[in-house]
């Protein structure tokens, strides 16, 4: 999950989504706008270890990200 942050540039967020997750430009831009407009977006889902690795990577890029267990499961 990535949160909106006034510091993070739209171009930079889209670049990170395209290069780190390998998303297309369209998908990356759509997720970036979702973060911007809704305040947050789930950009990836998966097992705990993979999600923690992704969160760590987002932190290295300086994006405000967190990972949380899906409600009702572990």
């Amino acid at each position: 999950m990535v949160f909106n942050d006034p510091v993070n540039l739209m171009s930079y967020v889209s670049y990170v989504f395209q290069t780190y997750f390998g998303y297309s430009e369209d998908k990356a831009d759509a997720l970036m706008l979702e973060v911007h407009e809704n305040g947050r977006s789930v950009v990836a889902t998966g097992g705990r270890e993979a999600m923690e690795r992704d969160t760590q990577a987002m932190h290295e890029y300086g994006l405000w990200a967190a990972c949380q267990p899906d409600s009702g499961s572990d």
Binding site: E52, T55, Q56, H59, E60, W64, A65, A66, C67, Q68
Partner: peptide, 26 residues
């Protein structure tokens, strides 16, 4: 803290554990 944020702001215990394991590398 903004550079080295909590992994899950709603779970302090998990964030502490994650920080121990990953903050150095970050």
């Amino acid at each position: 803290l903004r550079l080295l944020p909590d992994v899950d702001p709603e779970d302090e215990e998990r964030s502490t554990e994650f920080r121990r394991l990953t903050e150095f590398d970050l």
